[in-house]
């Protein structure tokens, strides 16, 4: 996508500069009209429409994947996240675990994050895992994410939410399935 757009940019600008430099021969009126219409038709209609087609062809399937439709196999892990000024309340409804500012998840398993807010609008975002979704008071939005690799991912509130918005961060730790089970056991024992 970036390649294609850079290309368009360079070509358009190049054409302009050339058009400015160019000293045209006088041409007949009819010929001039023809040239004009060709420019506008190709540049003004065909180019934008093909660009749109290209990027929609990319975009619509990619968007489809992000829908919280039932996954093909297995079950998505549900986690409830409630945002507060300026921290994250994390809850695992299946196991009753409660956490603050951190999520622990199994890698390779789809996650359904049920997002809501206790006060103002926040937005849940883990840049390396996927898109963001807003957290609104009074509503619950469901975000489908999946961490493919074990590791630690940084997350941050992405919708401006007041004074300490810049410090509203959290971490997502993804484990291999066995480590995740171990973590689960430890958490439930601790409680």
């Amino acid at each position: 996508m970036f390649g294609w757009f850079t290309f368009v940019l360079v070509v358009v600008v190049g054409l302009w500069l050339y058009a400015i430099r160019r000293a045209p021969e006088p041409v007949s009126k009819a010929r001039a009209r023809q040239v004009q219409n060709r420019w506008i038709l190709w540049g003004g209609l065909v180019l934008p429409i093909t660009s749109m087609a290209v990027i929609l062809a990319f975009g619509v399937p990619a968007g489809h994947q992000m829908l919280p439709l039932p996954p093909a196999e297995g079950k998505a892990l549900r986690i409830n996240v409630t945002a507060h000024q300026w921290w994250w309340e994390v809850q695992y409804p299946d196991s009753g675990i409660q956490l603050k500012d951190e999520l622990h998840v199994p890698a390779g398993v789809p996650l359904d994050l049920h997002l809501t807010s206790a006060d103002v609008i926040h937005s849940f975002w883990v840049p390396r895992l996927g898109g963001k979704l807003d957290m609104l008071p009074g509503r619950t939005n469901v975000l489908r994410l999946q961490a493919d690799e074990p590791g630690t991912y940084r997350g941050q509130c992405a919708e401006f939410c007041g004074t300490h918005h810049a410090h509203m961060k959290f971490t997502v730790t993804a484990y291999s399935p066995e480590d995740y089970q171990a973590w689960l056991r430890e958490e439930t024992v601790n409680d």
């Binding site: 302009w16 058009a19 045209p24 040239v35 420019w39 506008i40 003004g44 209609l45 180019l47």
Partner: peptide, 17 residues
């Protein structure tokens, strides 16, 4: 993008001619 494109290329064609 379409009306914008039309304008950009109308300007281009003007410069061209």
């Amino acid at each position: 993008a379409v009306p914008t494109g039309i304008q950009i290329f109308a300007w281009l064609a003007t410069l061209w001619q």
